[in-house]
Amino acid sequence: MPREPAERVAGCCRDYTLLTVSVLRERGLPARSRVGFAGYLAEGYHYDHVVVEVHDGARWVRVDAQFEPGWLPFDTCDLPRGGLEGFATAAEVWLALRSGEADERTFGVHPGSPFAGTSFVFDYVIRDIAHRSGDELLLWDVWGAMHGEAAVQEAEARWMDELARLVVAADAQDAAAVQELARRYARDDRLNPRGRVVQASPYGLPDVEVDLDACAPA
């Protein structure tokens, strides 16, 4: 419904996506949110971004809910796949960084932000797995093996290599990878928030521990 500006709610990409996912699910369509990076929001930089995936009966179609059809030079209701200039999942970006195909300085919240680079992408793979699994947490919720601005150690990077390859295989409809990813998410405390997160603030307020179960509607 049309609303006056003072009565509107401002939201980020995650909010647009979650609203769209909710509407699609209400209509009986399988839908989920994905966390990654968009190369089409600015030349030479990949901003962190969240998009919709809806299953059309044959495949998962990616939709950017923030853009009307015709606003960009491609179909925002069926985002192109492959490469880093469109939307790439955090797992795809991680593998590109590890192979030397991408520059970590071009992935983050915005150019010059401390929230960028390899550690940032590491955390976003974990966020994407949660979203893919139906836990659509805030982009500033922190849990498990997330790093913040701390450097990723090589042992952790190898663990993430395996995990990212599993996500990519699951996205390619590898049934065994889908099952293994679900198993790991259910069992691994490094991936699953277990109902509790530390909620950082995009406005610089103190961090807050949040009990997600206590926030859930009855």
Rank of each mutant, 00 (worst) to 15 (best):
R3K: 05
E4Y: 15
E4T: 12
A6N: 15
A6V: 12
A6M: 15
A6I: 14
R8W: 13
G11C: 11
C12Q: 15
C13N: 15
L19W: 13
T20C: 02
S22C: 03
V23W: 14
L24I: 01
L24Y: 04
L29V: 14
R32A: 03
S33E: 05
R34F: 01
G36R: 02
A38H: 09
Y40I: 01
A42G: 06
E43T: 10
E43V: 11
D48K: 01
V52Q: 14
V52I: 11
V54H: 00
A58S: 10
R59A: 03
R62Q: 08
D64V: 00
F67P: 08
E68I: 00
W71Y: 08
W71V: 00
L72E: 07
F74W: 04
D75P: 15
C77V: 07
P80Q: 02
R81W: 01
G82C: 07
E85Y: 09
A88E: 01
T89E: 00
E92M: 01
V93W: 00
W94V: 00
W94D: 00
L95H: 00
A96M: 13
A96Q: 14
A96L: 11
A96F: 13
L97D: 11
L97G: 06
L97W: 07
R98W: 00
D103I: 04
T106Y: 13
T106L: 13
F107C: 09
G108T: 13
V109N: 14
V109P: 13
H110G: 09
G112Q: 08
G112D: 09
S113A: 06
P114E: 05
G117I: 13
T118E: 10
T118S: 05
F120I: 03
V125H: 03
R127G: 06
R127S: 05
D128K: 02
D128F: 03
I129N: 08
I129P: 08
I129Y: 08
I129H: 03
A130S: 09
R132G: 01
R132Y: 05
S133D: 03
S133V: 12
G134I: 07
E136R: 09
E136K: 04
E136I: 06
D141L: 06
D141T: 04
V142F: 15
W143E: 08
A145S: 07
M146S: 06
H147Q: 03
A151C: 05
Q153N: 15
Q153S: 13
Q153D: 15
E154D: 06
E154M: 00
A155Q: 09
A155S: 11
R158Q: 07
V167G: 02
A172V: 06
Q173F: 09
Q173H: 14
D174M: 07
A176P: 14
A177T: 09
A177L: 06
L181K: 02
A182F: 05
R183G: 08
A186R: 08
R187D: 10
D189T: 05
D189V: 04
R190D: 00
L191N: 03
P193M: 07
P193A: 07
R194P: 15
G195P: 14
R196E: 11
V197D: 12
Q199H: 13
Q199P: 12
Q199V: 08
Q199G: 11
Y203G: 03
G204A: 02
L205F: 07
P206T: 07
V210A: 12
D211Q: 10
D213A: 05
A214P: 12
A216E: 04
A216R: 12
A216H: 05
